[in-house]
Structure formats: structure tokens, C-alpha cells
């Protein structure tokens, strides 16, 4: 009975985090982006500086008609948002928050691989949406999504492998156990590559060619309305949370910091929040990369860098052992 209660509590906490953190990031994006552009952003919803804007948006989305285009492949079209969103919910299970035994949803032995594999599945949702919409813009968006995933999955994997090499384990809590402060400068190149590739996989600006609104309307999500569209948006913001959390755990030492025993979870959240801010910051600062620039950046810049990082990790590892 106690086990059941424990599992239920964990699931509840996860669900809560899954619903709250992306909204938090979304609201921060509203406000930070606005102020970086000399605006105020939402000011009315909820009374105080528009804090309830995203709640209002959610209500609005729920009221909208759920339209399925006539020529679309109905079932796949309707299934796509779930395929896009659920993997991120699953990934959240494996991310350790604090140093304690129970501070992770479920200890996954091959944590890194679990996380990367399941995140890759999420992109299938975009592909399904792009193909099933029976819309040439959606199809183009799907194509770009696939090409981007193909290019950026590799550097992500390689840099994650570099961390795994350094720690000698592929379990996320295990990596945090083994973490030392000097890993940050040691793995910094890998961290930057991982973060950048993750941004590209989430299709966040400046890597948002798959949903470039000035060229292909909204890419794979062009035909979506109402709640299904909201689910895609939620998936994007959940993806930001996951990516920032993962980067924190792999490269920034997760819960490590002063008073880690008591405040470890706070350190994780803080580092994640700073990274999420950087994600928003990058969106505001840089223009969208063209499709060929995207590919060239991945193959001629990120992959060599990540290979160099692996070589460095190997050399240092051999030297210190």
C-alpha cells in the first residue's frame, strides 16, 4: 500500500511539474521578450502584470473549434499532438532534482539513452502532423523538421556520450554522483554543443526554420486549431524545460552547490531557470538561420566540436586514471 501511495505521489508531483513549469517558462518568455523589445508584454490578465495570460490562453484554446481538414488523414492528424507531447512527460521521470535517494521520479539505468531516445520520438509527432495535414506548408515543415532532427541528433548524442565517458556511467543520478566542479570547464564545449543542438531539435529560434512563419505559415502545425494546437505549444515549452534540465544535470552539475544537502533541488531549478532565460534571450537576439545554414552549422561546426570534446574527454580520462 505504501508503495502504491509513493508511486501515486511521485506521478502527481511529476504531472504538476509538467503542467506548471512550461507555463512558467511561457510566461517568462512573454515578459522577458517584451522587455527586451522595449514593450511591457501582457498586463491585464489576472490583474497583476498579466500573470494569468497563459491561463487565459488555455481557456481560449479550449473554447476553439477543433478543425480537421477535409483532405487530412484523420486519425494520424488527431494522434500527432499526443505523440509530440507524451515523450516529454516521460522524460521528466528520469531527471534527478536533488541529491536524496527519492529526488528522481524513477532511477533509469541507462538514463542518458532513455532521455535522448524518448525525446527523439517526440519529433515523430511533428512529422506525423506535417504529413497528415494535407497541406504543402505542413509537408515542408515536416521535411525541415526531419532534416533538422537528423543533423542535430548526432552532436547531441556525441556530447552526451562525452559526459558519460567522464562519469563512467550512463545513469543520470550516477553522473551527478561523480560530478566535480572542474567538469564544467572540462566539458564546456560539449555543453554548448549539447544546448545548441537541443535548441535546434526543439525548433526554437534561431533554429526555427521548420515553423518559419514568414515562409511556411507555421510549418507542421499550420492546420491545427484549439486544444491540439495548444498541446503542440505545450510540447515546445515542456521541451525547453527538459532541455534546460538535462543540460543542467549533464554539464552544470545539477544539484551541486553550496548547501546541496538541503537546497539541492533549488540549485537544479535555479540552473534550469537560468538556462531557460538564455533560451528566450537567444530567441530575441538572433535572426532565423536559413535551411542550408542550419545544415552547414550542424555538420561543419557542431559535429567536429563534439568529436573534439570526446577526444579531449578521453585524453583527460586516461591521464587522470
Amino acid at each position: 500500500m505504501n508503495d502504491v501511495l509513493d508511486v501515486a505521489l511521485r506521478l502527481l508531483a511529476l504531472l504538476l511539474a509538467f503542467l506548471v513549469l512550461p507555463l512558467l517558462v511561457g510566461q517568462t518568455e512573454h515578459k522577458v521578450m517584451a522587455h527586451m523589445q522595449g514593450r511591457l508584454g501582457p498586463m491585464y490578465a489576472g490583474g497583476f502584470h498579466g500573470w494569468a495570460q497563459l491561463v487565459a490562453d488555455g481557456v481560449k484554446f479550449a473554447q476553439k473549434e477543433d478543425v480537421v481538414p477535409n483532405g487530412a488523414d484523420r486519425r494520424i492528424f488527431q494522434l500527432a499532438p499526443a505523440v509530440a507531447l507524451l515523450p516529454y512527460l516521460l522524460v521528466l521521470v528520469a531527471i534527478p532534482v536533488g541529491p536524496a535517494e527519492g529526488a528522481v521520479g524513477q532511477v533509469v539505468d541507462a538514463g542518458i539513452f532513455f532521455v535522448l531516445a524518448v525525446m527523439g520520438v517526440g519529433v515523430l509527432g511533428s512529422l506525423m502532423a506535417g504529413w497528415a495535414s494535407a497541406n504543402k506548408f505542413s509537408l515542408l515543415g515536416g521535411l525541415r523538421t526531419a532534416a533538422q532532427l537528423m543533423a542535430y541528433e548526432l552532436p547531441m548524442l556525441l556530447t552526451a556520450a562525452s559526459v558519460a565517458m567522464a562519469a563512467g556511467t550512463v545513469s543520470l543520478p550516477g553522473i551527478l554522483e561523480a560530478f566535480e566542479w572542474w567538469w564544467v570547464p572540462w566539458q564546456i564545449v560539449g555543453g554548448v554543443v549539447f544546448f545548441t543542438a537541443g535548441l535546434a531539435e526543439l525548433q526554437r529560434p534561431p533554429f526555427d526554420a521548420p515553423i518559419a512563419d514568414s515562409e511556411i505559415i507555421f510549418g507542421a502545425y499550420t492546420e491545427y486549431t484549439g486544444l491540439r494546437f495548444a498541446l503542440f505549444l505545450l510540447a515546445e515549452y515542456a521541451g525547453i524545460v527538459i532541455l534546460c534540465g538535462l543540460t543542467t544535470v549533464l554539464f552544470l552539475g545539477g544539484w551541486h552547490g553550496p548547501f546541496a544537502d538541503g537546497l539541492g533541488w533549488l540549485w537544479t531549478l535555479l540552473k534550469t531557470a537560468v538556462l531557460a532565460f538564455v533560451v528566450i534571450w537567444l530567441r530575441v537576439s538572433y535572426p532565423r538561420l536559413r535551411e542550408d545554414q542550419l545544415q552547414r552549422f550542424a555538420w561543419t561546426c557542431l559535429i567536429p566540436l563534439s568529436l573534439a570534446q570526446i577526444a579531449l574527454t578521453g585524453v583527460v580520462k586516461v591521464v587522470i586514471s
Binding site: F113, A117, V118, L149, M150
Partner: peptide, 21 residues
């Protein structure tokens, strides 16, 4: 477990994406 996740990563995440592409 490891084999399972690699299976998902390689086949579902990459090979099928390539196929769909």
C-alpha cells in the same frame, strides 16, 4: 534496458525519421 533505449534511439528516432523523410 540499455539495448531497449538504443533500439528506440536508433530505429524509432532515426531510421523511421529517415524513412518518413
Amino acid at each position: 534496458e540499455f539495448i531497449a533505449w538504443v533500439q528506440v534511439l536508433i530505429y524509432v528516432g532515426s531510421v523511421v525519421v529517415l524513412l518518413l523523410f
